[in-house]
């Protein structure tokens, strides 16, 4: 399978990327790791006429502490996030979740900005970023602006980015040694989640909880968060995990089973985050 023809533009800075987006208009697409875009181009589900390759923009590759946040460049590959000592010490949920994406070859190419921009409801890192209450920094013709991640994922493969903008950075709070849990249910180890739940204790004392594949976008489990804030037990709160979700039915799971998984995985993630139980491994996961 070969994509249809396109022009290829290589940029080495964010400014060049913004200029190229302005020049080529809406038929142009950013190419980062290419591990979501190239497969759909090979299937001709996407037919951009220009690809703007940002993978050579070194200024987008970093994981660093910035005040009370960790700032991560959009070009950071899943593999680099997984191995980042800064991330492991400051926000360990993220490197763990990075290690659960796809397989090693995929993690060697896929980038954080790419997975956020792609906006797949089943994606792992966006779920973790949502639980963390991340900020998405985008650059465009009018400079940079910050979008709270809770306002970023608008619908199925639709984000709050405007035409001509690209993601340059993700910012998350430093959670340090605070508890976190990520429970991903798959049929095979390297698959996308059928459902996944992320839970993390945040510096403001709240617990962030988010779900993958329970609707058209990754979702914040607001009912669970509210119940925890009111002092409800983990069991009571997790029982609300499917509230306000709209999961689909497919060959892997129907709505009822996905709702069950959401409650179960949320409970497990919260218990791991609270230090009550160990994280499930691929071998021990059963639902």
């Amino acid at each position: 399978m070969i994509p249809s023809q396109f022009d290829y533009v290589r940029v080495s800075t964010v400014d060049e990327a913004v200029a190229a987006l302005a020049e080529h208009g809406e038929d142009a697409k950013i190419l980062a790791g290419g591990h979501s875009l190239l497969p759909i181009m090979k299937l001709r589900l996407a037919v951009p006429t220009v690809l703007i390759d940002i993978s050579g923009a070194q200024e987008l590759n970093y994981v660093r502490v910035d005040g009370d946040q960790v700032a991560i460049g959009a070009g950071t590959r899943h593999h680099d996030l997984e191995k980042s000592e800064v991330a492991q010490a400051e926000v360990p949920l993220l490197p763990h979740v990075a290690s659960r994406v796809g397989d090693p070859q995929v993690r060697h190419r896929g980038t954080l900005g790419g997975t956020v921009a792609h906006c797949d409801p089943a994606s792992d890192l966006p779920t973790a970023l949502l639980a963390l209450g991340a900020t998405v920094v985008v650059a465009g013709p009018n400079g940079r602006r910050e979008i709270p991640i809770t306002a970023f994922f608008l619908g199925f493969f639709e984000t709050a980015m405007e035409e001509g903008e690209l993601i340059v950075e993700l910012r998350v709070p430093r959670t340090g040694s605070a508890g976190w849990g990520y429970e991903k249910f798959t049929r095979r180890e390297n698959d996308w989640p059928i459902v996944a739940a992320a839970a993390v204790h945040l510096p403001d004392g709240s617990v962030g909880v988010a779900l993958a594949n329970m609707g058209g976008v990754v979702l914040r489990a607001e009912a669970v968060e509210a119940a925890l804030a009111e002092g409800k037990s983990i069991e009571e709160a997790a029982a609300l995990a499917a509230e306000g979700t709209s999961p689909s039915s497919d060959m892997h799971a129907d709505v009822e089973y996905r709702s069950h998984l959401a409650r179960l995985l949320t409970q497990r993630a919260l218990k791991v985050a609270a230090g009550e139980t160990e994280a499930s491994t691929a071998e021990s996961t059963a639902a």
Binding site: G34, L38, S55, Q105, V106, R109
Partner: peptide, 15 residues
């Protein structure tokens, strides 16, 4: 230095 699936990388990306 990193393993990749070459069916999902453009030749130009290996410049």
């Amino acid at each position: 230095g990193l393993t990749v699936k070459s069916c999902t990388v453009l030749a130009l990306q290996a410049e």
